[in-house]
């Protein structure tokens, strides 16, 4: 359940940003979580519910955007479908992950008095 430590890092990053801008509160957070990030969005959401209490994020909505995995050939750039071996069907070079491993804080909406 490393989702708790992800939430801890998230809240401390938000607190830092809110303090720097003299925010009175935080209303909404936007995060991106990739399908191959190793973070489970549902677990992240429940960890956030529990751990945001009595922090600057208390009551702030957590919006999680899920990012699908996408692979492409490391040589020719052609899309490679997951399911079979992760090699290019054309040039046989290994695929690389184009997207899907994000654990990213995109945006904070904060209340500035």
């Amino acid at each position: 359940m490393h989702e708790y430590s992800i939430v801890e890092a998230l809240i401390s990053r938000v607190a830092e940003e809110a303090e720097a801008r003299g925010a009175a509160g935080v209303s909404r957070l936007y995060v991106k979580i990739g399908a191959l990030s190793g973070v489970e969005p549902d677990l992240l959401a429940s960890a956030y519910e529990l751990f945001s209490e009595r922090t600057i994020c208390a009551g702030a909505e957590l919006r999680i955007e899920r990012v699908e995995e996408r692979w492409a050939c490391s040589g020719c750039g052609r899309a490679v479908e997951r399911g079979a071996a992760l090699v290019c069907p054309e040039c046989a070079r290994p695929a690389r992950l184009v997207q899907g491993d994000e654990i990213v804080l995109e945006r904070i909406e904060m209340e500035v008095p």
Partner: peptide, 26 residues
């Protein structure tokens, strides 16, 4: 402060971060 209608509610300011949540660990 909301200047639109003078209601006194705090203004909601969006702040773009675009940073890995585990940047501190990295």
């Amino acid at each position: 402060m909301c200047l639109e209608c003078g209601c006194g509610d705090p203004e909601i300011v969006p702040v773009d971060v675009h940073e890995k949540i585990l940047a501190g660990n990295d």
